[in-house]
Amino acid sequence: MEAAAKTFFTSKYYAVAGASQSPHKFGYKVLHWYHEHSLLAIPITPSQPSISIASTTYPTIPSPSALSHPTETSLSIITQPSITKTILKEAKEAGVPAVWLQPGSFDDEGLEYAIREFKAGVGGDGGRGGEGWCVLVDGESCMQAAKEETREKL
């Protein structure tokens, strides 16, 4: 899973399915994490036209099929497992190479699909936190490992 997490952070763009305007929800917290790390992240939510973080307003898109650069975008997913299955299928059809399933966003079938169908599928048991692989807990170290690996290849 660590290799998949490193691969996840080699994308040029990022998206957050289940993004929220509410600072108390994980969809906001994950989008904010990308914002804090200066990573271009597109919020995916059909329920609102934009999400604001600090002084930045991000226009939203309704689904992974609306991504401008899907083959260069890694996708964090923070939705209920039943919705995650639909998001995964749309992301696969759009050509998204990597997905990160936040704790609580998947069932066994969804996790198996993500690992099998994407170049990198991150989720499930492991990571540094007690609830499984989480961008908020594991993202920093995985992003740094990806940068180091890229530097070594040059």
Rank of each mutant, 00 (worst) to 15 (best):
M1N: 09
M1R: 07
K6E: 15
F8C: 03
F9Y: 12
S11G: 14
K12R: 15
A15L: 05
A17R: 00
A17L: 02
G18R: 00
G18C: 08
A19G: 06
S20P: 09
P23E: 13
P23A: 14
K25E: 05
F26T: 00
G27K: 00
Y28M: 08
Y28S: 04
K29S: 05
K29A: 10
K29N: 12
V30L: 06
W33L: 11
W33T: 03
E36V: 15
H37G: 12
H37C: 14
H37F: 13
H37V: 11
H37M: 09
L39F: 14
L39Q: 10
L40I: 13
A41P: 13
A41I: 15
I42P: 00
I44F: 05
I44S: 03
T45G: 04
P46G: 07
S47C: 13
S47T: 13
Q48L: 13
S50Q: 12
S50W: 08
S50E: 14
S52D: 08
I53H: 01
I53M: 06
A54Y: 14
T56Y: 07
T56F: 11
T57K: 11
T57E: 14
T57D: 06
Y58K: 05
I61T: 02
P62E: 09
P62I: 05
P64A: 07
P64T: 08
S65P: 04
S65A: 15
S68L: 15
H69K: 15
P70S: 06
T71M: 07
T73R: 01
S74P: 09
S76H: 05
S76E: 03
I78Y: 09
I78A: 13
P81R: 03
P81Q: 07
S82I: 08
T84P: 01
T84I: 05
T84A: 07
K85V: 03
K85C: 07
K85P: 02
L88Q: 04
L88C: 08
L88V: 03
K89Q: 10
E90R: 09
E90V: 10
A91F: 00
A91P: 01
K92L: 10
E93T: 10
A94N: 02
G95H: 06
V96D: 01
V96T: 09
A98Y: 04
W100D: 00
W100V: 01
W100S: 00
W100I: 00
L101T: 02
G104V: 14
D108Q: 09
A114W: 00
F118W: 09
F118L: 06
K119R: 13
K119A: 07
G121V: 00
V122A: 08
G127Y: 07
G127Q: 04
G127I: 06
R128F: 11
G130V: 14
E131S: 11
E131N: 09
G132Y: 04
G132E: 03
W133L: 01
W133V: 02
C134A: 12
V135R: 04
V135G: 03
L136V: 10
V137D: 06
E140H: 10
S141W: 09
C142A: 13
Q144D: 13
A145W: 11
A146C: 11
K147W: 08
K147M: 11
K147H: 12
E148N: 10
E149R: 12
E149T: 14
R151I: 15
R151N: 15
E152C: 15
E152G: 13
E152W: 15
